[in-house]
Amino acid sequence: MPSADSSVTLVPPCRDSCEYGTLFDDRDGKTYKTVKIGTQWWMAENLNLYMDEFSNEPFDGQSGCLFDNPAYCDEYGYGRYYLWSMAMDSAAFFSDDGKGCGSGVVCNPQKNSRVQGLCPAGWHLPSADEWNILYLATGERAEHLRASHDWQYYPNGPSVFSICDIYGFGALPGNEDRTRVNFLTSYEIDEKYSAGVSISYSGMRVYIDWDYKSYGFIRCIKD
């Protein structure tokens, strides 16, 4: 998976002084908080686009809400999780970048090209390399990206709060025991695997490695 890049500059912690913005998605009227970390602009919230609104056929099982509870997608601010093929916009609703991508096939998006996927216009599904740049820029520590709340087994006492979420990224847990979250990338490995990003409550590293073309959350990055 991505190798260390010595040209990436460490970004000083900026939780209270980061450069924040907003992203308005005119497809469904939602507005997302964004944050600039180093040279990258990231969504500081998970994508929450409900694809059934754009098709006459329901996408049963291809996206969902934590605990199968719509409140987690909306009121609680977790956004939706998506199957990798949907995240890539394999049906080409918004662009042809990831057309035909999915499990059992190799669509071979170019490594350095941008795949819009389900992201709003002007933003794209991050590559594994773009996630690696974020990881390196934020000090190679998972807790620097992890939200300081909602992690079931993470103590979040005063002694550790100061190193949680120090860049305003606010990664929330994405599984039912609230110990881990998986994010999707546009990087395809073969017909079965793509690169996935995993952040856990107990791990110090952000893991960027092979994963099945399965489910995860989406953080879009600006073109």
Rank of each mutant, 00 (worst) to 15 (best):
D68L: 11
E140F: 01
L172T: 03
W84F: 08
R205Y: 12
W131V: 11
N48D: 15
A87F: 09
C119H: 10
S3F: 13
R146D: 04
E75Y: 14
C107I: 11
P155C: 03
R219S: 02
R146V: 13
D190R: 05
P109F: 10
S127V: 11
D26R: 02
L136P: 02
I208E: 10
M88A: 06
Y154V: 12
S186H: 07
Q110G: 02
S85E: 13
W42D: 11
K192A: 07
G100T: 08
K213T: 02
Y135L: 11
I166A: 03
G98R: 02
N182I: 13
V8G: 05
W42G: 05
V115D: 15
P109M: 10
N175Y: 09
Y187R: 08
K192T: 10
L118M: 15
A44K: 10
Q110T: 13
F24H: 04
G61R: 11
L66M: 07
E143V: 14
R178C: 01
D97R: 01
C119A: 05
T31H: 01
D190N: 13
W210T: 12
D150Y: 06
A4V: 14
D96L: 15
T9W: 03
Q116V: 10
I218K: 03
W84S: 04
V106P: 02
E53Q: 07
S202E: 14
G117I: 12
A147Q: 00
L66A: 00
S6A: 14
S162D: 09
K192R: 09
P58Y: 15
P155Q: 03
T138M: 09
Y193N: 11
W42I: 15
A44D: 09
S103Y: 15
C220K: 00
G174R: 04
G104A: 12
I189R: 05
K30T: 00
V106W: 04
L49P: 08
H124L: 11
Q110C: 08
V181C: 00
C73S: 12
G38Y: 12
Y212A: 01
G21F: 01
I133Y: 06
K33G: 01
T22F: 06
P173D: 09
E140Y: 05
D5V: 15
G122P: 08
G174H: 06
P58F: 15
C164R: 09
G196V: 03
S148C: 14
F169Y: 14
T31E: 04
N69F: 14
P155A: 07
Y153C: 03
S3R: 12
E45Q: 04
M51W: 11
G203I: 08
G61Y: 12
C164A: 12
W84P: 06
N108L: 13
A147K: 03
R205C: 03
F54I: 12
F183Q: 08
D209A: 04
E53Y: 13
D25R: 00
A91Q: 11
R80E: 12
A147E: 00
D190C: 04
D129A: 07
T22R: 00
G174L: 04
D190V: 00
